[in-house]
Amino acid sequence: MSTAPMTAYPTPPEALPQDGMSNGKFGIGLMIVSEITFFGTLIAAYVFYIGRDINPPYPQDVLEVSIAPFKVLFNSVFLLISSVWIWLAVRAMRKGRMGAFIFWWALTVVCGAEFLVGTGMEWYDMIVNDGVWIGTNLFGSGFYTVVGFHAFHVTMGLIVLTLILILALLGHVTPRNVEKIDLVSWYWHFVDGIWIVVFSVVYIFGNQAIT
């Protein structure tokens, strides 16, 4: 292959190395693509079932879009702003400021945890006070599946974030790891982005009286 062609024969043009993005970026990027098609399917099913419910309660009887503490808007703000924190964390790391990195990273973890706690409280309220569970009606099936899978992804992300935080506190994370840390932040941005879609569909678009 690499043997140079003999001089009597035509000389080939120069062969360039074929370097694309790093493998890790491809890997995480494609994982996010497959996750998007997964959530897309669940959300499509949710949208399909809006207004087709035969049995109450309907979403507008149950869902409360409120900014009050631990209500959904409040939680959403925490989750979405955590995207900013994690971006700041990665930026700090690129500049080699590990202290700032740990600060912003920890703030991300706190915000993510608040979101989970808030979701838990909302679920508790819905199950205990409103009596809506996954088997109650179509809305229940769709709501707990879509929001539940999102919360599951937040939980997974939070576990990874916490592990990195612990490792960073123990001094095992150095600026040399920034590319990998950056990939984790991609995942976290994806989880936030999906929440915008889930929130719009479940709490706004699907939360109106059936005509």
Partner: peptide, 16 residues
């Protein structure tokens, strides 16, 4: 879990 996605009696859809 007793969800109703494909349960025609509860409004679910076989075509979905």
């Amino acid at each position: 879990l007793g969800a109703h996605f494909f349960d025609a009696q509860a409004g679910g859809s076989a075509l979905l």
